[in-house]
């Protein structure tokens, strides 16, 4: 794993120098500048709305960044024939895949930290002007942003897996988006089927839904936004569960990505 750092630095450099990322950063800055204005649209819950908008903006921006950078990571290098040169060096394919993953993951976490910090400034400004009855629970806000970052790092591992298998942009891009939406809805579908309604559907269908539920990611475990918005008490158990789930699922996805890319022939 000696060359892991080489690929890590290379990918960070690629993203930092990418013109698309520069344009995207300008859009992000504009979004956060507009949040105080939009927060004032609510006459009673300005603080709550500002927290909601900040968390939604962070989530949406991280989603776009994760999908674009993750889906195009390995596939684009193969398509542009960079891998023909790179993999002729004494490096392993695992180093290549994991180096790329780590670089994008670190940038996702760094973006979440920066946007979290900007959110704190925006929320502070709002609460100074429109004080709310419930004080902001900064720890909950921190946990919500961190959980979101974990969610998108996990989504990145899925996008990376699709990218290692694909020969075009379409599979990794659309498959990752589909998995994202399915992963956000899976818990609700599962609960619905596990309830009274479940008894009305055939056993085989229930089994299939159950299997799909365990295969696709469950992003609901990372949703701690309500606790942050309304300063509700947050117990450690769901946080630990989310971390554990993140480690296991991401680990499996990365193993599959390395396995898939190792089998790939660079014709």
């Amino acid at each position: 794993m000696g060359n892991f750092h080489c690929f890590y630095s290379l990918t960070v450099k690629a993203l930092i120098r990418d013109r698309l990322v520069h344009i995207f950063s300008l859009v992000v800055a504009t979004v956060f500048l507009l949040i105080p204005v939009f927060s004032m649209f609510s006459m009673r819950q300005v603080q709550e709305l500002s927290i909601t908008l900040c968390l939604s903006a962070i989530s949406f921006i991280l989603l776009i960044f994760t999908i674009l950078s993750g889906a195009s990571s390995v596939w684009r290098d193969v398509e542009k024939r960079y891998t023909a040169s790179i993999l002729g060096l004494p490096v392993s394919r695992a180093e290549f895949v994991l180096g790329k993953f780590s670089a994008i993951a670190v940038l996702i976490v760094a973006s979440a930290i920066i946007m979290g910090f900007v959110s704190c400034l925006v929320i502070t400004l709002i609460t100074l002007r429109y004080p709310a009855d419930i004080p902001v629970n900064w720890l909950n806000l921190f946990v919500a942003v961190s959980a979101d970052a974990l969610k998108y790092v996990m989504l990145l591992s899925i996008a990376l897996l699709f990218s290692t298998m694909s020969t075009s942009f379409f599979l990794p891009f659309f498959a990752s988006i589909s998995v994202y939406f399915a992963g956000n809805a899976s818990q609700e579908v599962f609960d619905y089927v596990a309830g009274e309604y479940g008894t009305t559907i055939p056993f085989l269908s229930r089994m299939i839904i159950k299997c799909v539920y365990y295969v696709i990611p469950n992003f609901a475990v990372f949703n701690m936004k309500v606790q942050a918005i309304y300063a509700l008490p947050l117990t450690p158990a769901p946080i630990f569960y989310a971390i554990l789930y993140f480690i296991c699922y991401t680990g499996i996805m990365l193993c599959l990505s390395v396995w898939s890319f190792n089998r790939r022939e660079l014709v």
């Binding site: 290379l10 450099k13 690629a14 990418d18 024939r81 960079y82 023909a84 040169s85 002729g88 060096l89």
Partner: peptide, 21 residues
């Protein structure tokens, strides 16, 4: 084995390198 390439200098056909570097 990737280590077998330690003593090799390889030039692929129509090489392509990271353009941002």
């Amino acid at each position: 084995e990737s280590s077998s390439r330690l003593r090799v200098g390889y030039l692929p056909e129509n090489p392509s390198f990271y353009e941002f570097l």
